[in-house]
Write a protein that binds this DNA or RNA. Structure first.
Lengths: 192, 192
DNA sequence: GAAACATCTTGCCATATGACAAGTTATGCT
DNA sequence: AGCATAACTTGTCATATGGCAAGATGTTTC
């Protein structure tokens, strides 16, 4: 039998099968259309999602008022705005579906209950967040030390769905470059 | 009476005075000399520190083999390598004192005990980590959207101690630029 | 299916930053 | 103090990326 999305995502040694079942039961499956707004600037996040299919993008305005893509969320990933959800404060992010898809939603209240009831789930949460922090720091270093073309190739390799589904301008702002630069980088890569 | 460093750092609504006392008692004061190694590549972190005075730097090698300064830790900040400490895995970072100073150390085991015993401390931990993640993402955006001179001025404003105490080359790698570029940026700022 | 609009590409030139190397200043060591 | 070494500055030139504007291509709407 294949692993469920729950087993893949809530992957922690100390989580027993019955714990995993309680956790799984707290999720509700939803469908979403292209353009669906999961969260927007000024609101407080009250849930998070496990993406089963489709592609979602989050973005915010930088200090110049330009739209910056902060993340893409695809199949098998957790769609969450951590600081709004866990600090109960309004977000600066906007999270919108780039394609239609399906996901599993869990509300903050239910999460909170399980989080305090199941120590291993609590540990999982901390480990997951540690890893997010690690990856975020890694991303910073990549931005500082690798060329835009390198960064583009890395996405192409690790998350090809983004390249296929997301418009160039969103990828460009995710990479921190202008649309025209990305267009030239693509051309260069193709002709090579 | 002035706030203790514990009140400043472990600042969470639901943390009661008696909880804070248990937490404070789990810390042990230490002195450290310039060059003191808090953690090094390949080891697993077994504690974290609240810095009372002095300046500490963490760094790692990027994929080119160049040293990259990942963070500076000063007075009133938490010196911690989250992913090694909470995932119990070897770190890639090196953490070394740039100056002598004092700190409060808490071991992982003691932390863990309090973390599971005091729900409000657990909540504090999650909120703190959420905020770390938020700041890390903010830093990524800054790196992508602001000029090196801007980034330098931001440090000068928010953490002047770093500019005063850390060698230029460490600041340069933290900003993601070369030593000579930073030297020129400084010159430019002075002459303005 | 044509107009209106958004997206992407390309050309030209400007600018920020890097690479390398030489010189200068500061620091540490005995 | 004097040597050795590390840290910093500066010059020259190279390169990556940005800014702007014109065109080209694709998409939506009525």
């Amino acid at each position: 039998m294949t692993k469920s999305i729950f087993e893949k995502i809530y992957n922690h040694l100390a989580l027993r099968k019955e714990d995993l079942d309680s956790i799984a039961n707290a999720h509700e499956q939803i469908d979403f259309q292209k353009g669906h707004v999961f969260l927007e600037n000024g609101k407080v996040a009250n849930e998070y999602y496990l993406i089963q299919s489709g592609l979602v993008r989050s973005w915010l305005y930088d200090y110049n008022g330009d739209e910056i893509t902060t993340e893409f969320y695809g199949d098998g990933e957790i769609l969450i705005e951590v600081s709004s959800l866990f600090q109960r404060i309004p977000t600066k992010e906007n999270i919108v579906a780039l394609t239609a898809g399906t996901a599993l939603r869990i509300d903050f209240d239910k999460f909170q209950e399980l989080y305090h009831k199941i120590p291993a789930f609590n540990e999982w949460g901390r480990a997951w967040m540690s890893n997010q922090l690690f990856m975020s720091k890694q991303r910073t270093i990549d931005m500082l030390t690798r060329s835009a073309a390198d960064r583009y190739l890395a996405i192409l390799k690790h998350k090809p769905l983004i390249i296929k589904e997301a418009p160039l301008k969103h990828i460009a702002s995710y990479l921190g470059i202008t649309n025209s630069s990305l267009s030239r980088i693509r051309k260069e890569i193709f002709s090579a």
